[in-house]
């Protein structure tokens, strides 16, 4: 567990603190998102965890110990870190870049090589094509994915990820986000993830910390709570006027209780069961219908869901929805 205790960071010569009396708990095995407008102190908060920046006051506890009492380099080697500006080593190949921490930990050659290939696959880059290239031979988005692979290399229990998908195109980003969540479901790392994209925050976050100008924590809650009960006008504005629709994105259509199909339903739009309710609603609007057919991942018809069901779901909080199997 990582605990921020009244952490303040005042940069020399700055008029006011970049982070101001910041306290929160990052829970083990969860993705905690830091989100907020540019310059609100997200990166500063993150860098205080692995001591790239020392707080002016307050402390950061890692498993109950003040991180100032821990050995700096050992602390950092145990925390995967993907920096906002990527920062690959220009003179090292992609495979060598990924193997940075494994080399520090003195893994043998074969293990490093296998791990690098495995991670390249994971971030969607063909190992045979990319492993021996230099960073300058990759696009910005590809470099960023290598940066994420490098952070994951030694399988650290804690990860700090500063806008790790910021330079990736929307389609690849969506795939990476999904993949990242799939892995996370298995490995359950403790992750601090910085973004300024509220949609990414809602998709990826187990908990979301919304920061505002001056490094002040505006709200720290689970995504559902943040969308239903923003605690201030700032948070409400930040999550957006469409927060009702964003809430729909939190639930998969496969988790909703479906109705049997009447007739052949051929003319209705079809959606896969792992589609979220926001996209299902979009499919209804696009198809000009008030009902869609839900298919299993194998492509078989599982049932149907109506616009009315979506409306009723919308009135119930997500927790209840999941618990009751969610029908009116």
């Amino acid at each position: 567990m990582i605990g921020f205790r009244n952490v303040t960071k005042q940069y020399a010569g700055a008029a006011r603190p970049a982070v101001d009396n910041f306290s929160l708990e990052v829970y083990d095995g969860e993705i905690t998102i830091f989100v907020g407008p540019s310059g609100c102190g997200k990166t500063t908060c993150m860098k205080m965890v692995n001591r790239l920046i020392e707080p002016s006051s307050g402390e950061i506890l890692i498993n109950g110990k003040d991180n100032k009492s821990l050995n700096e380099t050992e602390l950092r080697r145990g925390i995967g870190y993907a920096i906002q500006q990527i920062g690959l080593f220009p003179h090292r190949t992609i495979a060598e870049n990924i193997s940075t921490v494994p080399r520090l930990l003195k893994w043998d050659k074969k293990r490093m090589r296998d791990r690098a290939d495995e991670l390249l696959e994971l971030v969607g880059l063909d190992p045979d094509t990319y492993r021996d290239r230099y960073p300058s031979e990759l696009s910005g988005g590809q470099q960023q994915r290598v940066g994420v692979a490098r952070a994951l290399a030694a399988d650290p229990p804690v990860m700090l990820m500063d806008e790790p998908f910021g330079a990736v195109d929307p389609i690849a980003r969506h795939r990476l986000q999904q993949q990242f969540l799939d892995i996370q479901a298995k490995v359950r790392k403790t992750i601090i993830f910085v973004t300024h994209d509220i949609d990414e925050a809602i998709l990826m976050g187990d908990r979301i910390a919304v920061l505002k100008e001056g490094g002040i924590l505006a709200q720290y809650d689970k995504p559902e709570k943040l969308l239903t009960e923003p605690n201030s006008e700032f948070v409400a504005n930040f999550v957006g006027a469409d927060r009702a629709i964003k809430r729909l994105a939190l639930t998969c259509v496969g988790d909703v209780q479906l109705e049997p199909v009447q007739g052949d339903g051929q003319q209705l739009p079809h959606v896969p069961e792992d589609e979220n309710l926001r996209d299902v609603l979009a499919a209804m609007l696009a198809g000009g219908t008030d009902r869609v057919i839900v298919l299993s991942c194998e492509g078989e018809v599982r049932g149907t869901v109506s616009e009315q069901t979506l409306r009723s779901l919308f009135r119930a909080p997500a927790a209840e929805r999941a618990a009751s199997g969610a029908v009116q």
Partner: peptide
């Protein structure tokens, strides 16, 4: 590049490394 140094520090390389 500064970010290269910072990434190196963040991954736990010592200053002499």
């Amino acid at each position: 590049p500064r970010e290269t140094i910072e990434a190196a520090r963040g991954m736990g390389l010592t200053s002499s490394q």
